[in-house]
Design a protein around this nucleic acid. Sequence first.
DNA 1: GTTCATGCGCAAGTTGTGTGCAAACGACGG
DNA 2: CCGTCGTTTGCACACAACTTGCGCATGAAC
Lengths: 159, 159
Amino acid sequence: MTDALDHFDLKILGALQANAALTNQDIAELIGLSASQISRRRQRLEKDGYIRRYRADLSPQALGLAVTAYVGVTLGAHSRENARKFRNMVKAMPEVQEAHTMTGDVDYILKIVVPDLQALSRVINDDLLPQEAVQNVRSSIAMETLKDDNLLPLRYGQT
Amino acid sequence: MTDALDHFDLKILGALQANAALTNQDIAELIGLSASQISRRRQRLEKDGYIRRYRADLSPQALGLAVTAYVGVTLGAHSRENARKFRNMVKAMPEVQEAHTMTGDVDYILKIVVPDLQALSRVINDDLLPQEAVQNVRSSIAMETLKDDNLLPLRYGQT
DNA sequence: GTTCATGCGCAAGTTGTGTGCAAACGACGG
DNA sequence: CCGTCGTTTGCACACAACTTGCGCATGAAC
């Protein structure tokens, strides 16, 4: 009934993740289908959860957000309660773009975007370090960004 | 003449980066302006580079991409030529979502998304390590993703 | 060979977008 | 205090895009 992506679906997903401003007509011409089919397939792809949402990709530079940093956080005593507080804190921080719990010697990696180094310092010293759970914080700053497209590779295991 | 974002512009940017499927009419009602104004402002925001592009945000899980990893790469002899090759290689690898040159003891951080650990291993052993420039590779795998919205914080230094 | 399910394009109805226009507003100078 | 000018707004309309019903083609099951 549903599921299982064919060749057309993958092309639609690929086109939309690179440029969601494309009209159905554009995509139709691109992959050799009619606009109405694109519309129907797109609805299905949204309903089945392949497309999570549509986003405008803003320019950090234009908005004065010059500093991107990765911050590794190590928790001390892994008390349930303190860890929970830490996670909620992180979710509520607008400067944090991504947060993952990691394997290896660091418990969390945070991707942080701020206007300048002073703001980064403020985030680390005022928000992160005062947390009871936090034992250690190591930050590394992105000097140059080679690639930042966040495009998922779509060629795996399909038609 | 141009530049300088007012309160309305920030609200529009905020709404669109969270959900680009909103119509001008939706945003108009949200922030108390007419749809035509949203249209005009949006055009300006695009022209002035605040909005880079529109993207469909796909679900890695739905697409069978279960493994996200951060890979730290250290280059050996920093020969200009080998470094250049390394950067081009990275740009061409579809599994690499982000790549930054970093301050600190690691030269590059790569965000990599693949279907499984085997695929990660393949990327590291077949693509990364054989590079002449590469001296050392350390990878850390995301066990749980707390946050992954990539929403820029918009409240800095404006009206 | 018939039936059924699926996917297709076309065309029509609906919804959304963008521009001309006139009015409102604010800044500035007389 | 008032007029002028530039900017921003809402409205209305023309245009563009989206979506859905429909009939047809294709291919699998029996």
